[in-house]
Computed example of a mutant assay.
Amino acid sequence: MIRPHREMHLVARIGWLRAAVLGANDGIVSTASLIVGVAAAAQGRTEILVAGVAALVAGAMSMAAGEYVSVSSQADTERADIARETQELATQPGFELQELADIYVARGVEPALAREVAAQLMAKDALGAHARDELGISEVTTARPVQAALTSALTFAGGAALPLAAAAFAPPSVIVPAVSAAALVFLALLGGVGARAGGAPIGKAVLRVTFWGALALAITAGVGAVFGVAA
């Protein structure tokens, strides 16, 4: 007897994983860059920590609001397409049947079989078949605004806390290199964890995230040094 087995596909994680990686990456990069910029401008530890905490709180709220608004827009578009498809199924069932069959033909199914498959799927769940195969909307990829907002806010705060902690414990004279080095290490770890969770190549993800993080830190440190000297 052959026992059915359950498969756990990594694409099921795409909704929260994207928001989590984005939030943590932005938290590390933006907060570390701000701290490095303020420190490079020859500010004291108190000013540096106040700026870092403000960046953490403001960034987390901004990420939550931004993710909620953008993903809500996606959800609104999906609902509008579903409503349109529902109306077309009610008024033009024959056209919708042929449209679904044509999709399967384009994927390599014989025309007669494609029409039979389309008819059977529409008999069971016409809207679900069209949402999945015509619109590309499924349970896995559907927009979830609240999930995206909470995930982004929490992971941003967690990411921002790491360079902030490095700044709090590093000697004042080495805050810039200490925070920069810590941020790059944290970014490399984030890239590796995110790649592992998503089943992607780890080396490529680590290189990508550390490169852009290092670039952001270098530019911000340069700006801070220029304004610090000018002051």
Rank of each mutant, 00 (worst) to 15 (best):
H9A: 11
A205F: 02
L187S: 06
A153T: 00
E7Q: 12
S62V: 09
A123M: 05
W212H: 00
R107Q: 15
I35T: 06
A83H: 13
G52M: 04
A195M: 08
V193Q: 02
A157H: 01
I82D: 03
P4C: 04
G27W: 04
S180F: 08
A161T: 11
L135Q: 11
A216E: 07
I103Q: 14
R18P: 01
N25Y: 07
G44S: 14
P93Y: 10
T220K: 02
A83S: 14
Q87F: 10
A160D: 05
A143N: 09
T46Y: 11
G27F: 13
F186S: 15
P172L: 14
R144Q: 12
G159Y: 04
I137W: 01
V11R: 14
L135V: 07
L49Q: 00
A41N: 03
R132M: 08
D102G: 12
A168E: 01
V146C: 03
P4I: 07
R132F: 09
P177S: 01
A148K: 10
A41E: 03
Q43W: 06
E7P: 00
V105M: 09
V71L: 14
G108Q: 10
G136F: 01
A65W: 09
A123Q: 13
A168Q: 06
R13K: 13
A129Y: 03
T142A: 11
A157G: 08
E134V: 12
P4E: 02
M122P: 03
Q147K: 12
A148T: 02
S33F: 02
A123N: 11
I202E: 03
G136R: 13
L215H: 07
W212D: 00
G66Q: 06
R115A: 04
I48E: 01
F156K: 02
V105K: 05
L217Y: 13
H130N: 08
V174K: 03
I103C: 11
G15K: 15
F211D: 01
R18Q: 11
G203P: 09
S30Y: 07
A75V: 04
L113Q: 07
M63D: 03
P172A: 14
V29N: 10
L10D: 02
G213Y: 08
I2Y: 12
F186V: 15
P145I: 00
L207G: 05
A182Q: 08
P177A: 01
T46I: 07
S180L: 06
G159V: 05
A60Y: 08
D81G: 06
R79K: 15
G15L: 10
E99G: 00
G213I: 11
A114R: 03
Q92D: 13
I14W: 12
V38I: 15
A41Q: 07
A83C: 05
L121A: 12
L34H: 12
S138G: 15
L207S: 04
A221N: 00
M1C: 03
S73D: 10
L97W: 08
A168R: 07
A165W: 06
A166H: 02
E139I: 01
L89F: 09
F95R: 10
